[in-house]
Design a protein around this nucleic acid. Structure first.
Lengths: 101, 101
DNA sequence: ACTCTTAAGTTACATTTAGTAATTAAATAA
DNA sequence: TTATTTAATTACTAAATGTAACTTAAGAGT
């Protein structure tokens, strides 16, 4: 399709962040560790996709998943250092949204 | 699905930027005005979607479209002020990608 | 033992969006 | 008249998303 010299890391970053809901999930986690249901109720995302996205983010090392064997079970998701490193970008989008939308 | 107090502007920003290819199209335009074919060859995006995305970005006021009645026709796309205002966010993602991917 | 409750998912299926390749439109040049 | 070039659009297939029902696990109550 092309002979581009597109940076593969940027392409991957955009693919990751650009996936639907991912940005907003990360934004939610800037408020601190949250359990599955908290994230689900804070965003118009379904359990199906939330589960899928959290798995991707965990696999990419942006998010950490912790299971607490309480009753009923509690599962908490939080940002890793790699995830926190995106805070600047996310805040930047947030302030752009405030100024321009 | 939820009772969220999700900021509608942030939601819209994420929906826009989070759409596939949009981030990379904007990134390309940081290099200056470019014609349709230039963008198409610089990214692994098809003409169909590139056309669709550029229309959305034009409609949202991030991108400007200029037609030059040369032969054959030349169509140039460039960032508006609103589009340029996203430069910080995009560069931020770029540097995150360099550091973490 | 058996049913109930709750969180955290998963599954099945319909709808929407994206990918691919062929086609069209407009303006000229040969 | 036919060919060429850019900028799309169209028709069709494949993949991603939305929706709602279902499952699993671990007690708690009777």
């Amino acid at each position: 399709m092309n002979e581009s010299n597109l940076c593969p890391r940027l392409a991957k970053a955009m693919d990751l962040i650009g996936k639907r809901w991912t940005g907003l999930i990360l934004y939610q986690l800037l408020d601190g560790p949250q359990r599955f249901n908290e994230i689900e109720s804070s965003l118009p995302v379904s359990g199906r996709l939330l589960s899928e996205r959290l798995k991707e983010l965990e696999k990419e090392g942006l998010v950490e998943r912790k299971v607490y064997s309480e009753v009923p079970v509690r599962v908490e998701y939080s940002l890793t250092d790699k995830g926190w490193a995106l805070e600047g970008a996310i805040r930047n989008i947030e302030s752009w949204a405030t100024s321009w939308l």
